[in-house]
Design a protein around this nucleic acid. Structure first.
Lengths: 401, 401
DNA sequence: ACAATTAGTTTTCAATCTGAACTATATGCG
DNA sequence: CGCATATAGTTCAGATTGAAAACTAATTGT
């Protein structure tokens, strides 16, 4: 008799309603709803909302922001928002850079800093040390703005074991089964630091703060081609945690071997390296090569044009297969696919039309609007989201302290 | 302020716990748990379980089945089971046959009948009329066994709109946007008749009564190649309801055109028709052709062997891509893939090893154990499951009646 | 100044769980 | 046979919490 569902206790109702109210405030965003509006929106009575909001305000998660005047007559309401004085630090380790940001509960990026850093092949301890310096900046920024840091999120370009703070495999960093200690980056943060995958975090960033919809596929074009699958407004990671490996979908059964051990993978046709090579861009830093490629495309050089055209075509094959299997009806392009979108779109769309006619409307094929902060926002957002989803646990913890 | 979550009311606790108890009884299955065991298993107190079980017994969903003696000492418990006197009729329309079964709440197939029927191109009304005859047999069998019919499930090989009883498209039946009236098949059944897709129902049948696990992909090889995606013990249908279209995953970008309008689809390599043709099996009824093919395979005729080998190879490509995208770690083969499994497996496994090495362990590649009743069980199971998941609503309805 | 209107609080009530005490029914040993 | 022991199931007081309705608070318009 394996039990997965906890019994319903009377107190669960309050847990759920605390979350419902917080979520409602979060979703209403800049509108700063009053208690009465929340009651109307949630279906709870005004009395219940008042009681719930009182708990949330007391814990510091929600704050009143002055009077709110909407209609012409009547007593004005107290506007409510997720506290701007509670924040989460989002952090990102990628192949060519490190980034840190401070996000308040309302999802506003209050501080942001990126530094170039060639992390490929570097020891994890070394990278974490550098990241620690950046994190200290975020901590200082928080102190200056009187923001108390609840926790942090750290995104890395690889498969992670969140429970044990392990990076199981990050081929582009040359990391394999590395133990990180992200908690050290933010000592004393009550919710700790949560490790996550870069493409997944970017997908969540789009969902919560960008172009996302309840169901979509985020395509991350960094050094590798990754993806994040959002189903019903939740990240789908699969039983083993490695879902969304769009880069290793087979797009041609007779294609070349791939670093993953497979063959004919999308990444061998549409990865950064594959495109640069096919376009005839010489070795160099990522920034340089990208500039050269964009220049070549602007100049309509045939090799570059063809390379991007092919990448789009094969990306179309992968998206067609994905749309069939998962009924994906919206796609958000990120990373280098966002940069190349202008040149990529025509062949991508015609490929989709050829392999999955009518399934994916081109208007649902959008480009990330968050640029470089998407991953950061997503990494921090996961911690913010956990507070929105179970504020009761947070209340408990803060009462004990 | 779009609201999706209903507010938590005090009464919700009971809803949830009624479901928890029913689910617990269902999962314990043949063990017929006592109230005390349920209390231990669910984490509820004995008092709460007693009260919940009383409601369920009163409504007829659960019945006491005599004393249960486990330990040596102490008062023996009353064994509980989902009532064997409440049933759901599972029905299936397929291209070459019609089938009906009677399933009791405990998931036991109490009556089963299949008839050959060439339904391709037949008007839906005609087919429904024939099906009505079979349904009458099930109703008679239920009456004879003193089983009261709560509802029914009807599976068809096509995309359905469950809300409006529409078959949006069933290409293999030559149906397009047909309105069915499945309610007429079981007049007076309180929960009505629920329309569903054949591959999805078969997948659910495997999940609840067969080889399924919490996460797996069911591959249905009927006239078309379909699939059912089970994630976290739930069917994933996608935002548009058409997820799992494994047959139209692109396995070769230069492949031939497909009936779906795309190109290079798996179905053009591994569909029944494609295999028969490649194997050189002449036209005829499905049964005849299958026998010829099996005979040819047993005789190791090269053409047939090669045809099945190729089908396995391309199925491997599709499964490799699926495993990457959705982190699928288990597959159940049904339909003609189950029949051909013996000859299909070698090339399928080597293809998986080539395109997604290490991802899908061959031991997690199993064959359906339910044979022809899987779809039926799944179609009925959806109604049974809805009762297990919200017995409160059922109690209400039965109190009004 | 007062009616009208909207925001938010207080009070009473019902639902339903927990926990503890209690009753019911079995086994085993002297 | 009778009583200790053990387990199943029931009863009842107590706590939590939202609904409903009445009430108080704050603002605008005439």
């Amino acid at each position: 008799m394996n039990e997965q569902t906890a019994p319903g206790r009377v107190g669960d109702v309050r847990r759920r309603n605390l979350s419902l109210v917080m979520d409602s405030i979060a979703r209403t965003g800049d509108a700063k709803p009053s208690r009465a509006q929340l009651a109307a929106g949630t279906g709870l009575t005004k009395a219940a909302v008042s009681s719930l909001v009182a708990d949330l305000v007391e814990s510091g998660l929600v704050s009143e922001v002055g009077l709110y005047r909407d209609g012409e007559r009547g007593r004005p309401g107290q506007g409510l928002e997720l506290s701007a004085r509670r924040g989460v630090v989002g952090m990102e380790i990628n192949v060519d850079y490190l980034a840190v940001g401070l996000v308040d509960l309302g999802g506003n990026l209050r501080f942001h800093s990126t530094v170039e850093s060639r992390n490929r092949g570097l020891a994890p301890e070394k990278v974490m040390e550098r990241l620690g310096g950046l994190a200290a900046e975020a901590i200082a920024a928080a102190a200056a703005a009187d923001i108390s840091i609840l926790g942090g999120g750290l995104a890395v370009p690889g498969l992670v074991d969140e429970q044990h703070n392990l990076v199981l495999s990050a081929p582009n960093l040359h990391w394999e089964h590395e133990k990180l200690n992200p908690q050290n980056l933010l000592e004393g943060a009550p919710l700790g630091v949560r490790l996550s995958n870069e493409a997944n975090s970017a997908a969540l960033g789009e969902l919560w703060y960008g172009a996302g919809r309840p169901d979509f596929l985020y395509v991350s074009g960094e050094v590798g081609v990754g993806g994040g699958v959002i189903i019903g407004s939740e990240l789908y990671t699969g039983p083993g945690g490695s879902a969304g490996e769009l880069g290793h979908i087979v797009v041609h059964p007779d294609g070349p071997g791939c670093s993953c051990g497979g063959a004919g993978c999308l990444e061998t046709f549409a990865g950064q390296e594959a495109i640069f090579e096919a376009a005839g861009i010489p070795e160099g830093s990522l920034g340089q090569r990208t500039e050269l490629l964009l220049a070549a495309l602007t100049a309509q050089e045939p090799r570059a044009t063809q390379a991007v055209h092919d990448a789009g075509r094969y990306l179309g094959v992968a998206l067609a297969s994905s749309a069939r299997l998962m009924d994906i009806e919206a796609v958000v392009l990120g990373g280098h696919f966002a940069v190349l979108a202008e040149w990529l779109r025509p062949s991508l769309i015609s490929s989709l039309e050829r392999y999955a006619p009518g399934l994916l409307d081109p208007s649902n094929l959008t480009v990330s609007t968050l640029e470089h902060s998407g991953t950061l926002l997503g990494a921090a957002g996961q911690v913010i989201r956990s507070v929105i989803e179970s504020p009761f646990e947070f209340l408990l913890a803060s009462k004990l302290a």
